[in-house]
């Protein structure tokens, strides 16, 4: 069903291209993604079209950025043969809680450097002046550690050649959202970049990622009404204990 839906869109896009002057178009299949917590994650499905003459001298790049989050990173060190977490920490503010990049070809970072810094594309260019351009070696080291941590959790993804191109004009890309994906508004920026490193066109979409199911309701309950949640947890445990004792008294 989903596939059929996409095909129809592709056909519509293809016919539209013949008279449209838009050189870049992109859209998402579902703008409201609900992660069912009993299954493993979800996907963001992006498709679009690009003018085929331009595509020969250009690359497509898609960046998906989740809601901002502040991170604190601490290092572990060994003392008396025991591993201890350092008290000192380095804060990284307003970083994306989810960040994924996909491109149509392998991109030459030298050519695109200025554009990437300006547009804050790529992990190394996020809050560039604060994070990378500072000569703080420890900050850089911790920044790399944060990167590794997010990659391990599946919250930071790089996919070279992750965009599939059809007929030099239609493209699609898929991004995986793991179960622990943060909820909120995700911005999707699609860039058409010339081989000389200049931005030709840009397209923005946004989607809302939410979770559904009992787990998500419990999470919201615990965060928004902590005290009530506490009483609920205690009460539920007492009822469960009561039930258990009644059941086994009869066996």
């Amino acid at each position: 069903m989903k596939k059929l839906f996409i095909y129809i869109f592709f056909i519509l896009l293809a016919t539209r291209e013949s008279y449209s002057k838009d050189i870049l178009l992109a859209d998402v299949v579902e703008s409201n993604i609900k992660i069912r917590t009993s299954f493993s994650g979800a996907e963001i499905f992006i498709y679009g079209s690009v003018e085929s003459q331009i595509y020969d001298e250009a690359d497509i790049l898609i960046v998906v950025r989740g809601p901002d989050k502040n991170f604190a990173v601490r290092k572990k060190y060994k003392k008396f043969g025991i591993w201890i977490v350092e008290l000192d920490k380095i804060n990284f503010k307003n970083m994306p809680s989810y960040y994924a990049i996909s491109s149509s070809r392998k991109l030459d970072s030298k050519i695109y450097k200025n554009l990437f810094i300006k547009k804050q594309i790529g992990w190394e260019n996020l809050n560039y002046n604060e994070n990378i351009n500072s000569n703080d070696k420890k900050r850089l080291e911790f920044y790399k550690a944060l990167e590794k941590n997010l990659i391990k959790k599946g919250l930071l993804l790089y996919k070279e050649k992750g965009i599939a191109i059809l007929n030099k004009s239609l493209f699609k890309a898929v991004f995986n959202l793991p179960e622990l994906t943060p909820t909120g508004i995700y911005n999707i920026n699609t860039y058409l970049i010339g081989n000389n490193g200049h931005l030709i066109a840009e397209w923005t979409n946004s989607i809302e990622v939410s979770k559904e199911g009992i787990a998500e309701e419990l999470y919201n309950f615990s965060q928004n009404q902590s005290l009530m949640y506490g009483f609920f947890a205690a009460f539920a445990a007492i009822i469960a204990g009561l039930l258990a004792s009644e059941v086994f008294r009869r066996i």
Binding site: R74, K75, K76, G81, I82, W83, K148
Partner: peptide, 13 residues
Amino acid sequence: ELIVTPKDMYYVG
């Protein structure tokens, strides 16, 4: 757990 070198040398919070 305390003695073995941790897999991840950093603590992210």
